[in-house]
Amino acid sequence: MTALALPTRRDEAFRYADLDALAPLWPLAPEIIEVAAGATGALAIVADGSAAQARELAITVADGGSFDLRVLNVGRAYGRIAVTVTLGKAAQFHIGAAQLGGGEQVLELVTEVRHAAPDAVSRQVVRSVLGGHATGTYLGKVAVARGADGTDAGQSVRAMLLTRTATANARPELEIYADDVKCEHGCAVGELDAAGLFYLESRGLPPELAKRLMLQAFIAEAFTGAADEDVLTEAALSALEALL
């Protein structure tokens, strides 16, 4: 893509984007993050607020480095976070993201993780809870370069729809040019486990409280192990309250 022209829906990474909301923000200035060999880095993005926002991150993790990215995407208008990560030899990348939206919100997380060298590990945990007429999108491409043997890439992507009018798009995509690669995909759009709900209700918990507890647990998975796990989880739970 060129930096100046507004993308169209034919651009795979913008297939579900709210282009009208994006136009005034365009062009985006990518935020560059470089993690040196053997170093560690972390970033937590809380995209809340009432204005539309779109961010692009370009992260490079050199050999043996690691980066931990957490995203809470709960803005009241359009919210788009796009991340490109390039991993060196034995580098590690973890993203844990939660998107919570209601009303007419359009929330998107777009990732491209490039395993450019052998033995790098990437983990993506994305949890979305969508109500009203909200749309939540995850587009996640994992590209494993020729020679990047020993790649270990995992994507766990789950969405819960609170209403029949909400939409979840989830598209994990693999592009593998190496042998000896372990890529695990888990992708599900669904409802809360009925057996679990009944178990909780059978103990006297009203259905709305049982649902709330299970949704809280569902979202918390995005922030497990984060440096500021408690802060992020609390912010996510208060966003959840607004949806229930």
Partner: peptide, 15 residues
């Protein structure tokens, strides 16, 4: 039933 992420004490007190 197993319920990940929800502790016994948490849900039993509410129940």
């Amino acid at each position: 039933v197993e319920i990940p992420g929800v502790s016994f004490v948490q849900f039993l007190r509410e129940s």
